[in-house]
Simulated scan of single mutants.
Amino acid sequence: MPTNAAIELGLQKALSEYREWAGRLGEDEKGDPVIFLNDKGVKFVEASVDCKLDQLMPLKPSPVLLRLHPSLKDVEELVQVQLTSNFLVAWGKASRCLDMSPLPLHDRTIFNPRKPPNFEFEHRGAEFKSKKLLKDYPNNYADSFVDDIVVHKVHFTLDFLSKLKARASPPSNNGNNLQNKPYSTFESLVAHLWRAITKARGLSGFETTHVRISVNGRMRMSPRVPTEYFGNSVLWAFPRARVKDLLREPLPYAAKLIHEAIAKVNNSYFKSFIDFATHKAEKEEDLVPTAEMNKSVLCPNLEVDSWLRFPFYDLDFGGEVLIYSRHLIFQQKE
C-alpha cells in the first residue's frame, strides 16, 4: 500500500480538479445557497490500529461499525469520504502519480430551465413541501434512532435472483408467444423485499405503504448528462400500495408498481422539476426541498438505494483494485 503521505498528496491533487469539495457552503447576495470556491481544503485524519488486517476482516455490520462514520456535527468541510463517487477513483490515480482522466465537468448550465418553463408534473408534495412541516420535523429526528438501528446483511445467490426475476416478470403478451420485457433484477428484488418486510411488520390491511427509490437522471435526460459531470442528478420514485393489495396480489403486482413509478421519472419529469425548482419553488417562501426533511424513512415505508453502478472496481490507491460486492441498501425503522 502507498504511504499516508502519498495518499495525502493524491488528495491534494484531486481537490485541485474537484474544487467544490475544497470549498465552503454559503449564500450569495440573493440568499441562495452556493459553494464558495475558496480552496480552504478538507480535514485529513490519520488513524492507526495495532493489529493485522486479516484479524478484522471481513467487517461485520454493527452499530459499532456505524460509529466509525465521520460525524456531520459542526463540520464545515464539504467532503466526508465514502466509496460513492468518481472523485475516489481520481484520488486513487493521483496517489499513483497517474493522470486524472477524464477530468470532471463543472458546467451547471446543462440544467438550465426551459424558456418558457413547462410545469408538466406536480412537484409540491414530492420534491417540495411546506416549510411548516420542516419546523415540525426535529433536527435530531434521525439521530435519535442511531442506537435502535439493526444492521442486517443478506446475500442472495444468482440462482435465487434468476428464479425471483422469472417469477416477478409479466406473463405472455395477450396470449401470444412474444413475452413482455422482464422486470430488472433490481425491480424484482425490491418487490420481493417490500412484500416480505410489510408482511413481517403485521400492518393493517388498509394502511398505505410506499418505497422511496432514488432514480439517477444521467441516463434518462435528453441529451444525456455527461459521465464527467460533477454533481447530483437524482430524484425519487414513490411506488405505493395498500397493505392488503400488496400482500394479496402476486409478486408481479408489486414489481409492476415499482417499474411504472421508476419509469415515470423520465426526461420530461426531470425537465419539469428543473423548471419548477427555478421559477416556482424559489418564489414560494413556504416551500422547502424534501431532501432536507426526509432524513429517515419510517414504518410503514421503506427507502432503497442501489450501488450497483458505482465504480468500486476502478478504485486503486496502489494496493491493487478493491474487491467489492454489489450493494442494495434498505433503510427502515420498525
Rank of each mutant, 00 (worst) to 15 (best):
S172K: 02
Y253V: 01
K256H: 12
N266G: 03
P311T: 12
G31R: 12
L134M: 11
A255I: 02
E27K: 14
D39N: 11
A263R: 12
P252A: 01
S48E: 06
R218S: 11
V151H: 14
R240S: 08
F111T: 04
P138K: 00
L11M: 14
P33Q: 06
K333I: 12
L322G: 03
K40E: 15
M221T: 13
G31C: 10
D74F: 03
Q179W: 01
Q12I: 14
F44Y: 05
Q82T: 15
L164T: 06
G318A: 14
N301E: 10
R167M: 06
G231M: 08
F276I: 01
G318H: 13
L322C: 12
K280P: 05
R96S: 06
P223Q: 10
N174E: 13
D54S: 13
A168F: 05
K333Q: 06
E8K: 06
H155C: 15
T109D: 08
F111G: 03
L189A: 03
P250C: 10
L56S: 11
S184Q: 00
S204V: 05
D148M: 04
M1Q: 09
N180C: 02
L78Y: 10
H123T: 09
Q12S: 15
K40T: 08
D143R: 11
K13I: 13
P289W: 08
L257V: 02
I197G: 02
S130C: 08
D50H: 07
K115E: 15
D143C: 05
P2I: 02
I258V: 15
K264F: 14
P223V: 06
E27P: 00
E77N: 05
F145A: 04
L134H: 10
A5N: 03
L178H: 09
K132H: 12
R220W: 02
V42S: 10
A281W: 06
F273Q: 00
L88E: 12
G125A: 03
A237G: 10
A254W: 00
E284C: 08
S16Y: 05
S162T: 12
R242V: 00
V89R: 07
L59I: 15
R167K: 12
G318Q: 11
D245G: 00
L66N: 06
R240W: 01
E120V: 09
R220P: 00
D286W: 13
E46T: 13
L257G: 01
K93L: 14
S101T: 15
L257F: 00
D136K: 13
P33Y: 09
M1H: 11
L161Q: 11
S16C: 04
V225C: 09
K333V: 13
V81I: 14
S296A: 15
H192M: 01
K256V: 01
A166I: 13
P104C: 11
K280W: 11
R19P: 00
I213Y: 10
R124Q: 14
K30H: 03
R309Q: 15
Y18F: 10
F330V: 02
N173K: 11
A126S: 01
L235M: 06
D245L: 03
V81Y: 10
D245K: 03
P63C: 14
D39Q: 09
L88C: 09
E127I: 05
K199T: 01
L315Q: 05
L105Q: 05
D28H: 04
A166V: 13
R309V: 12
V243N: 00
G205V: 06
D148Q: 08
D39A: 08
N38H: 07
R326V: 06
I274Q: 09
V89P: 04
N118A: 03
